Structure formats: C-alpha cells, structure tokens
Computed example of a mutant assay.
Amino acid sequence: MALLEVENLSTSFYTYAGEVQSVSGVSFHVDEGEAVGIVGESGCGKSVTVQSIMRLIPNPPGKIKNGQIRLAGRDLVRLPEKEMQKIRGKEIGMIFQDPMTSLNPVLTIGRQMTEVLQHHEGIGKNEALGRAAKYLTMVGISNPERRLKQYPHEFSGGMRQRVMIAMALLCNPKLLIADEPTTALDVTIQAQILELMKDLKDKVNTSIILITHDLGVVAGLCSRIIVMYGGKIVEMGSTQDIFKDPRHPYTWGLLKSVPRLDASKRSKLVPIVGSPPDLLNPPKGCGFAARCPHAMKICETQPPAYTDLNEKHRAACWLLHPDAPKVTFNGIDEKEARS
C-alpha cells in the first residue's frame, strides 16, 4: 500500500534572471516500510523534490506550481501551514545534508531533541529526556545521559549524524527523508550510518526516501531507485533493474563512473562529459541530449515519453522507440554484439 504518492509535481524559483524550473512533472510513490533511493548529479532536482514534500520551499522565491503530494491520502500541497507544522517531525522526519551545520551550536543536544517531543507530543521535560536517551542508545551513542548535556562541537561528524537520525525518529514518523546523510562523512562512517538506517527501517517499519548522488550508496538499502536529471525522472525501477538492466544513457553514465570491485586493473572510470542543462532555459527535447553519445535529431526537439519495461521499470528515452538503433549498456549495437 502506498504511503506517499507524488503526482505531476512541478516546483520553480522566480529570480531576477527568470523562472528556474527546478522540478518538472515528477511522479512516484513510496510504499509502507519501503526504502526508495533518488539519485542524480547536483542540481538535478533531488533536494527540491523532497523539500516540496515537506513544504519547505521558501516562498518567495520558490513555489509549488502544480501537482499533488498525498501522505496517507491527505494532499500536503493544500494543507494550511499550521497543519504542516504538525506533520513535520511527527509524521515525516528529515535528516538534512550536513550534520556539521544542521544542529544549533548554542543549544545542548538534549535541548534540541526534547524540543521536538515537547512540541509534537506535549510531554514533560524529564519524560522527553528519557525518550531522547533511549533513541541515542538506539543509534549507537553510548552514555546518552552525559551526551544529552553536551553541545554539537563536542561530537564528531559521524556522531552528529547519528544525533540527526535519532532526532528524525523521535516521534516515530511514518516516513523518513534522508537528504545525502553520508556526504560529509568518511567511507567507514558512511557504511555504519547506512547499516544503522537499514536496521532501524526493519525495527520500526519506517518508509525511507534516500537522496544521494552515489548509486553505490543506495544499493544495499533501497528496493527501488529513481534516477533524476534536469528536474525530471529519466528512469525508475527496482534496484536489480537499475543495476542489471539500465536502459537510459544517463543511468549508464552514472554506473560507469562508480568504481567496481570486479573490474580489471586496467579499466578506467568514465566521466559524463559536459554540464547539466540550464533550468532557466530548459531544452525543448530530452534534457540529456547535449551530453548523450547516442543522441538523435528527435532528442533535441521532442521530449521522450516513458516506456514501461516491466511493472516497476520505466525509462524516458528515444532509444527505446521500436524504430531507434538498438544500443546496449556498453554502447554497442545489439546486432554487432551478436556477430
């Protein structure tokens, strides 16, 4: 059963230079207890999408132009701000990108954690401190009573991220949004944080949206992956579909730029040449056409429709048209590959 349904979401920012179309016509869903990854380069619309879900887009200059965002049947786009304040932290928890700056440096960890509980559940200070200590223990922080009295600068980067996860889970939200939670952490701590999120998902059955630019990060946690580019979804499918049978050239580029343990010593990482499209003046056709080695004339003039590859897997690419050249993941024509 779908917990979150996003339909035809479009969000823009109005600047002196013009309208920046950050998100255009995005649709997806997240089931109860499911972890979904949203991947793509910086500036592709990942963070704006989840900030739109949380209704955290500053207005002005930002505005949700179109679409529906339904959480358990309620359309969040049309809810009054007072109702959204009850939902943020209570029904939807969010872990922001940088743990170094997300915590208030002049307030103790205990004050920041109990504030969430007192606001949403109206419980007393001592009871709130007890629950905060319980959740710090759950995320692997020892001696929580002492830690609650400390300030953020007394914690390492990995410990601060654990605090952020504990804060996001305090009110047992139905949905947890993690916006690049491992970006500022070293590889060892990244693995610990991802394993922690996986354990918590299994224990409390919380749905998760994981935002990242690294396909390798989502592989072990998410059952489905959404690939975004230029403010649009270009491919979505199960984790197995995306890794075993990717069908969009942008997804191919992301996969080829990730180091592989099974690759030969001589193999090199292949970067995606070029820059993302200017969303002040988005291209008329496919947003990836200017960087795609397999682009055709139609790619520059008309946006491709989605092609359903199976029940969960779909992609928007003209190469999937019956009359298009049959190009494989490695950039080889299928007829050549057979010969």
Rank of each mutant, 00 (worst) to 15 (best):
A191N: 06
Q190H: 03
M228S: 10
H213V: 13
K256H: 12
L194V: 08
L185M: 12
G237T: 11
I233C: 11
T239P: 03
L210P: 00
S238F: 02
S257V: 13
Q190T: 07
S223N: 10
T206N: 03
I211S: 04
I209M: 15
P246Y: 07
G231V: 04
L185K: 02
K244V: 00
C222N: 10
D245Y: 07
V217H: 05
T212K: 00
P246N: 12
M197A: 10
I226G: 03
R224H: 15
K203D: 14
V204R: 02
D214K: 05
I225M: 13
L185N: 09
G237Y: 05
G231D: 05
M197G: 04
D214R: 05
Q240M: 01
M197I: 10
T212G: 10
D199M: 09
P246L: 08
V187S: 11
Y250T: 06
T212Y: 02
L215R: 04
I193L: 08
M197L: 15
S257G: 14
Y250W: 07
D214Q: 14
D241E: 02
D199W: 00
T212V: 06
I211G: 08
L196A: 09
E195T: 14
V227R: 01
V227M: 13
L221H: 03
V187W: 10
I242G: 05
L255E: 05
I189L: 12
G253S: 14
I193V: 14
L210Y: 08
V204H: 03
R224S: 10
R224L: 11
I193C: 00
Q240V: 07
H248N: 10
D214N: 15
H248F: 11
K201I: 04
T188N: 08
Q240I: 08
A219C: 09
G216D: 04
G231F: 07
L196K: 01
P246W: 08
S223R: 07
G237K: 03
S207N: 07
M236S: 12
G231L: 06
I225L: 14
T251S: 14
S257T: 14
V204I: 15
T239M: 11
T212E: 09
Y229R: 01
W252S: 09
L194S: 03
V187Q: 11
G253V: 03
K244Q: 12
R247C: 07
I193N: 00
P249Y: 12
L215S: 07
D186K: 01
D241R: 06
